[in-house]
Amino acid sequence: MGKLTGILVLNKPKGMTSHDCVLAVRKLAKTKKVGHTGTLDPEVTGVLPICLGRATKIAQFLTEKEKEYIAEVKLGYATTTEDHTGDVIEEKPVDHPPTEQAVLEALSQFMGEIEQTPPMYSAVKVKGKRLYEWAREGIEIERPSRRVVIHRLKLVRYDPVLPYPTITFKVLCSKGTYVRTLGVDIGRTLGFPAHLSSLVRTRSGPFTLAQCVTFDEIKTWSPAEWVEQLLPMDAALTNYPKVELDWDKIKRVKHGQAIRVSQRLEEDELYRVYDPYGQFTALCCGQRSSVLKPVKVFET
């Protein structure tokens, strides 16, 4: 199949880890250089951009992007994992469900910058081990809280059926947000233990669920289709301004040299750099006095 380079926007199925998906894509694409752009729990479905070939160089930039999810929270009981896969640790069946107005008011309290404590069943490292490793040993360890940003939080549906009402919401959030924890905290604000009963990632950076392909689809691809169907790596970076350079400046960028350009640049802003043929060549950082400093070079 040759050396594939590009981005596969996969609709991750339930039951597979992100690493499982990478291994499967590596086997189907018959290529070794494959990486994902942010872990999804096995029970979560939806948008998982996977980078192949030289596109693995941009994985870190995609991981930093905001994400969007549709989440369903069930009130009435909490679990060890904060989702439906864990053991029940607290139960308080609902006899008088909150009003929809109360739910809307609870959601509004989580807009903007908030503080979260990572759940014990998560991949955060504390004292040299993943939290889920401590959890599996039955040890609850103190976890450092983190600041995350909730950009948008919208009620999609509220079903006050007793004894376990469900709240479905759409959230646009920063990197590092635990939607499981957000759901549990919303339930607590309403006065009930809660857990996440369903989660779908609908957007990761610029990529949406509508762009996703499934394993059933890619299993049928011929080598030529793999080349045709992969998105170019700069498709993941469209929020960064574009700069076109002449051949002399492109040559210097390829050698890692900072160059001065005629246009005004924003300091510390990243720029997509293209050669005169329109080939995406590098990501550069704007410096003072209209200087571009190479951060990642993709074409040498």
Rank of each mutant, 00 (worst) to 15 (best):
G2V: 06
K3A: 14
K3P: 12
L4H: 08
L4M: 11
I7P: 08
L8Q: 03
V9P: 03
K14G: 10
H19W: 01
D20M: 02
C21L: 05
V22T: 11
A24W: 11
A24R: 14
A29K: 05
A29C: 03
K30M: 08
T31G: 08
K33S: 06
K33E: 00
V34S: 04
G35N: 12
T39G: 04
L40S: 02
P42R: 00
G46F: 05
V47P: 01
L52M: 13
L52F: 12
G53L: 03
G53V: 04
T56N: 04
A59M: 10
F61A: 02
F61E: 02
E64F: 13
E66S: 15
E68Q: 14
Y69H: 03
Y69V: 00
I70T: 08
I70M: 07
K74T: 14
K74W: 05
G76V: 04
G76P: 00
A78E: 10
T80Y: 09
T80I: 10
G86C: 09
D87A: 10
V88L: 04
E91F: 09
H96P: 06
P98L: 08
Q101W: 04
A102M: 13
A102I: 08
V103C: 04
V103W: 00
L104K: 14
S108D: 15
Q109E: 13
G112Y: 03
E113N: 13
I114Y: 07
T117I: 15
L131S: 03
L131P: 00
L131W: 03
W134P: 03
R136E: 09
G138R: 04
I141R: 13
I141C: 09
E142Q: 15
R143S: 07
R143V: 07
S145L: 05
R146V: 05
K154W: 06
K154N: 07
L155Y: 10
L155A: 09
V156C: 01
R157I: 00
R157L: 02
D159I: 13
L162C: 14
T168P: 00
T168A: 03
T168E: 07
K170A: 14
K175F: 06
K175C: 04
T177P: 04
Y178H: 01
V179R: 04
V179Y: 06
T181C: 12
G191Q: 12
L196S: 07
L196K: 11
S197C: 11
S198C: 13
S198D: 14
L199G: 04
L199H: 02
R203F: 06
R203Y: 04
T208D: 14
A210L: 08
T214V: 06
F215M: 01
E217L: 10
K219L: 08
T220D: 14
W221H: 09
S222I: 07
S222T: 15
E225G: 08
E228H: 10
M233L: 15
A235T: 05
A235Y: 09
A236G: 15
L237N: 07
N239D: 15
Y240L: 12
V243K: 09
V243R: 12
L245D: 01
I250T: 05
R252W: 06
R252P: 01
K254V: 07
G256I: 06
A258F: 08
A258T: 10
R260D: 12
V261A: 01
V261S: 01
E269N: 12
L270T: 03
L270Y: 09
Y274W: 11
Y274N: 07
P276D: 11
T281D: 01
A282Q: 00
C284G: 11
S289L: 12
S289D: 15
S290K: 13
K296G: 03
F298Q: 11
